[in-house]
């Protein structure tokens, strides 16, 4: 029983990070209307950047957030400006190919720069256990969970309470009208990409103290983020948070009690069940919510 609870808590902690990855993907989808198949590779970029700062400069992985965050924000802006924006009027299929191409490019770039081996950050503090009410959880996972949750909630606040958030919501709903009433639409695409991708990079930093980087690690995150977004409802931010937490638990339980090799299969099973039973997502509520979302 204790062990079950412990496994679930470990999964919950991981799920917070998945939620962080997924809200970024959801924001980009809602605002820029692009399905970013390279999202997981941007998590990977955050992981490698943190690993490099740690191995070459001996930088504390959590301190490296002050570098990873702005670098990934700028990367998001660059991707929008130089890759996606020139494609603005292309067909949706072409846009999918472009982000798929970007993901393959980043995988190969990682292979070339860092080799195929696992790159881990062995930060002893992160592996120490904290015992809370008889449940053990590592500092690394706990920190990842707390920071990720804080950032997701900060994003909720931004979307609900600030002018930037209102503008982003307006773009989700009707970008033509947003332009008509004087909103510089392209500037806000840059903002959404910057925010979404910096969140992916931060997730990479948070996760590398307990999960090593390798050139194909991104595919795992892209898949997870997609399942979370479908689970929580396309465009539904709160749904992404809950979906992320649930998926973290499901994946960890499957890995512990069934077979570590079947973790991803478990994620896929959840994905397919949701698609069959509730294609609008568990928390979507109605098709309308899923359509206009980011509530």
């Amino acid at each position: 029983m204790d062990y079950l609870l412990q496994t679930m808590v470990a999964g919950l902690m991981l799920g917070g990070v998945y939620a962080l990855v997924a809200v970024g993907l959801n924001l980009i989808f809602g605002v820029v209307k692009i399905i970013n198949f390279a999202h997981g590779e941007l998590v990977m970029a955050g992981m490698y950047l943190t690993w490099w700062l740690w191995s070459a400069w001996n930088m504390n992985p959590y301190v490296s957030l002050v570098i990873v965050t702005p670098v990934m924000f700028l990367a998001g802006i660059a991707i929008q400006k130089f890759i996606l924006s020139p494609m603005q009027n292309s067909s949706p299929t072409m846009k999918i190919f472009v982000t798929l191409g970007l993901s393959v490019f980043l995988q190969n770039l990682a292979l070339w720069m860092f080799g195929g081996q696992f790159r881990a950050v062995n930060f002893p503090w992160a592996e120490q256990n904290l015992s809370l009410l008889g449940i053990n959880v590592t500092y690394g996972r706990l920190t990842a969970f707390i920071v990720a949750l804080a950032l997701v909630l900060a994003l909720f606040y931004l979307m609900k309470r600030t002018l930037v958030g209102k503008v982003l919501n307006a773009l989700v709903e009707d970008r033509e009208t947003a332009g008509l009433i004087g909103i510089p639409v392209k500037k806000y695409y840059l903002a959404a990409m910057g925010i979404g991708i910096s969140l992916a990079g931060i997730a990479g930093t948070l996760i590398i103290p307990f999960q090593a980087a390798y050139p194909l690690v991104g595919a795992h995150f892209t898949l997870l983020a997609f399942v979370v977004v479908v689970l929580g409802g396309l465009g539904n931010m709160a749904g992404s948070l809950l979906g992320g937490l649930i998926l973290g638990i499901v994946e960890t339980l499957a890995g512990t009690y069934v077979d570590p090799a079947l973790q991803q299969v478990a994620v896929f099973v959840v994905f397919i069940i949701v698609l069959i039973v509730r294609p609008q997502g568990i928390f979507g509520g109605s098709a309308r919510n899923a359509e206009v979302g980011l509530k």
């Binding site: 209102k166 919501n169 307006a170 709903e173 009707d174 033509e176 009208t177 008509l180 206009v292 509530k295």
Partner: peptide
């Protein structure tokens, strides 16, 4: 002010 009002309906 466009035809059909075009409000941001969920806001």
């Amino acid at each position: 002010v466009p035809e059909g009002r075009r409000l941001f309906n969920t806001m």
